[in-house]
Amino acid sequence: MPEYKYNNSNRGIRGTAKESAITGCKLSSGRVLSVQRNALESNEIIAKKNRAKFGRALVINFLSSPGSGKTSLLESIAPVLKADGFKIAVIEGDVETDLDKKRIDALGVPAYQIITNGTCHLDAKMVNGSLDSLNIKDTDVIFIENVGNLVCPTSFNLGEDMKAVVLSVTEGDDKPLKYPAAFYKSKIMIINKIDLLPALDSDISKIKENALSINKDITIFETSCKKTAEAGISGLAAFIKNEIKRKTEDFRKINYNTYF
């Protein structure tokens, strides 16, 4: 019987096992059990439940490195959407503290803080738990601000409609190439803090080129949240309003039973 190698060369691990194409076939070295399932299946099940609970609300999951300006973006976008009559809710994810929630509270927007106590990402279960406390009835858009980390949060579906990756110009134009998963999985990229460009060597066209090389369909926005140099916020808000409208229309078309 042929053998195939279990190989993890980076750690110098080697091993062999008898090969079998027959599911559950008993061999001297054990049983080969065909699984063929998503490794994060449990998370996916809860993500679907979240999606049902979100209902017609558009849900955007913000990913970024720490300090890229996710909370500042929410502080800039929320008043624009509120002024147009949209109802907003925010789920904040942080390793420690509810400082970001307090900033959202100050806007008069319902917010819930998930403190992960060291965990580097939000998962569907954490978000599901937050929905017991956060009133999202009649909400048009829910923003989830994930833990500041460009790697770990990318693996977990929270039931969102889209991921949005935020990148500040101070982070360098090679970030999309170094952390491709976040850019591959995001529908939009927000290049933030563009007011700092005159003081930096960052090449914004290179940032875009690198992001598009990972995900050719990613929609790109350039923003600044600085009060004296605010830019790009109205364009981003317009995009969100269109997506809210699209989600509401899609939700109406789909039979209720499909969601539940």
Binding site: Y6, V35, Q36, N38, L40, T154, Y184
Partner: peptide, 21 residues
């Protein structure tokens, strides 16, 4: 446990099979 990895160009994490006693 020994992990054997097959690589693809997607974003999936899929368990193909396990070998167990």
């Amino acid at each position: 446990v020994l992990l054997e990895f097959i690589h693809s160009g997607s974003d999936e994490i899929k368990i193909i099979e396990i070998l167990a006693d």
